[in-house]
Design a protein around this nucleic acid. Structure first.
Lengths: 181, 181
DNA sequence: ATAACATTTCAAAAAATTCTGAAAATTCAG
DNA sequence: CTGAATTTTCAGAATTTTTTGAAATGTTAT
């Protein structure tokens, strides 16, 4: 129940270490990685034993992963336990992460900046602060919109999307050269 | 030296609260926000007094903001102190954040996954794990590339870029409908 | 070189976050 | 309904991260 190939172990520890940079904690990262490398859905006891963490920690971390929509619960006939597996393909999970992060990292600030700009009369601030604040808000909203667009894509379309953006970007770079050089 | 308009105060506290979600800590977020709303460059003592934090904390946090390339040091004639201001326009700072976050959040995992895939012989893993791992690596590298493209853009081009991506995305959504419905 | 001013370092304190164990709640077969 | 199996909750313990104060280091005018 506890034997893990060395290569998987490294991956799991890495996801644990990166966890906090990705917006969750060590255990959540490790559990996600464990589910990622597991060929079959596994249950909470199994996770606790493999990662040597408490059953209660597993319970809370699984809740967190569910909030991120990164895992799904599976049931087996004749078995009361809940088994867990990653939520789907890499692309499905990536979309979930994107959605959550926009929600957690951008949305609150967008709300605040909107409110800020509508509350504070323009005359009370120096010109450039107001302009910079408006630019920041605009930029954050653009990112939100881009994220929304990306969410719409089907798995089969991501590659085309990446390539098209690459072309768009090249085009703009070229325009730039022609105009300014 | 310590009086702050209420609206700026709210903004600063918000940036403090969001700090940890953005990859730095409360103080770093607050200092950045303070510099953002300050019409003039300010010095470390001023920051400490305004935010009521220790001088040493200010020193370390300013170092951190410099590592993020989010601030710049200004000098005044006849004055030994260092004055600080945000690094430039919103777009310049956004590019700095994007660069840092790709570096901190994606690069280490890309390295690990590459190494993982080249080390572990294909036969030793179940087929689908290898495929999923490859997909994850590919996706992370796409994000890196997109970030690189975006970094190249001049301020004047961002809006065109956003609009073009919007069109690209709409186009793909339409293709999808035609093919599958 | 010195002294006054300024910044940085770092060990330890404070604060925040994560983890645990015990108890409570839930689920479901009989 | 009972009780065994399983999951969840949550107060306090453990750990990690952040902040501080004191000392060290660095800088510049005289």
């Amino acid at each position: 129940m506890t034997e893990l190939p060395q290569s998987n172990y490294e991956l799991i520890m890495h996801f644990g270490d990166m966890g906090s940079r990705w917006g969750f904690n060590r255990t959540v990262g490790q559990i996600f990685a464990l589910l990622f490398v597991s060929p079959e859905p596994i249950h909470a006891e199994h996770i606790a034993a493999t990662l040597r963490i408490s059953r209660s920690n597993v319970s809370m971390s699984l809740k967190e992963l569910q909030a991120w929509k990164l895992i799904q619960i599976k049931h087996r006939p004749q078995d009361r336990k809940e088994y867990f597996a990653v939520a789907g393909t890499v692309w499905i999970m990536a979309k979930a992460v994107l959605e959550q992060r926009v929600q957690r990292e951008l949305a609150p600030t967008v709300t605040l900046l909107k409110q800020h700009l509508s509350t504070v009369e323009a005359e009370k601030q120096h010109q450039s602060l107001r302009e910079q604040t408006e630019q920041l808000l605009t930029l954050l909203q653009w990112v939100q919109q881009l994220a929304d667009q990306v969410q719409q894509l089907e798995p089969s379309q991501i590659e085309s999307f990446v390539k098209l953006v690459r072309r768009v970007s090249k085009m703009l770079a070229f325009k730039n050269k022609v105009v300014f050089k």
